[in-house]
Nucleic acid binder design. Structure first.
Lengths: 165, 165
DNA sequence: CGATGCACGTTACAACATTACATCGCTAAA
DNA sequence: TTTAGCGATGTAATGTTGTAACGTGCATCG
């Protein structure tokens, strides 16, 4: 089976659902709601860490966050504590880990669960994300076809963004 | 535009070209040829590092490799040196970096250039890879559609392999 | 009141990665 | 033949990312 050369052209699928993209206070509120919904507490520490994470344009390392949260609280917060909470955020879908950057980024629509595709600029480091469920579902399907279960796709694209190009 | 529910089903594309999958000595030979082809030298050190890398079933960390190469040579080889050579291997397509594992894996068909999809088992750590050019081209296209250039897709799927499932 | 559970603190350490500079061996120009 | 240059590797130090083990404070509930 051979695909014709044009078979791979990008079609521009859009997800079948619509997102309410949050920002600022609205985002924090949505995050709190999602975390409580998951049966977890919205503590001061978690709130601070989420707030700091949300201020970043680029994926933030746990250490970046630890530094800023330390400043904000006037007291050293160990990376350790930050990792614990970041892990919680990732499992509850409030944040994502960007594997190719060893860093984290706030989910701008928490509570809305699906795979996403990150585009990370090698020059300026900013990350944007695409939602293309057709594509991510195909990746999942390919993995399952190969006998994998409980799959968690990691789809990231490194390159030059439109600004840095 | 809304995709019908079945639109994401996995179709099972195969690449339009055929690979000669190398193993053992044949693989080392192919690697040497590819490196020389790229205008680089095939030194003893590079040969040893490639050989060690190729023995791994699972993605190998630079430190894993450093340890084994040190044994093999009876003399400490610093991680540093290993990283240098791994970087070279990655840029010349003799090896791939598995971002979600901070580790490297030999390319079983060096000289054959295309994106690949890794499946990494969370239980046993083994990695297999899928070639699905339709899928990877779609990812590239999606990124380019978003204004990215010089794109380098990182597509990995974490999960449970058929054996560990 | 005491027991339990959870969030967070503290310390130490392990794992991954880079930087700067030194040395060695080869080759090409003087 | 010397020596200047260059690529590959060695050495040492350091930076960054991630985890483990264990302690403390605080709320809730019997």
């Amino acid at each position: 089976m051979i695909d014709p050369p044009h078979a791979n052209a990008y079609i521009g699928h859009m997800a079948a659902h619509h997102h309410h993209k949050h920002a600022g206070a609205s985002l924090a509120q949505a995050a709190e709601a999602a975390l409580v919904e998951a049966g977890e507490q919205w503590t001061d520490m978690r709130s601070d860490i989420f707030a700091v994470l949300a201020t970043f344009e680029k994926p933030a390392s746990a250490y970046d966050i630890a530094d800023l949260v330390s400043q904000r609280r006037g007291k050293r917060v160990a990376p350790n504590s930050v990792y614990r909470i970041l892990d919680l955020f990732v499992t509850t879908n409030l944040a994502r880990r960007v594997e190719s950057a060893n860093a984290y980024i706030a989910n701008s629509h928490p509570g809305c669960l699906h795979d996403c595709i990150f585009l990370i600029c090698d020059s300026c480091g900013t990350a944007t994300h695409i939602d293309d469920d057709a594509l991510t579902m195909s990746v999942r399907a390919a993995a399952e076809h190969a006998g994998f279960a409980q799959v968690r796709p990691v789809i990231e694209v490194r390159g030059k963004c439109a600004d840095c190009d």
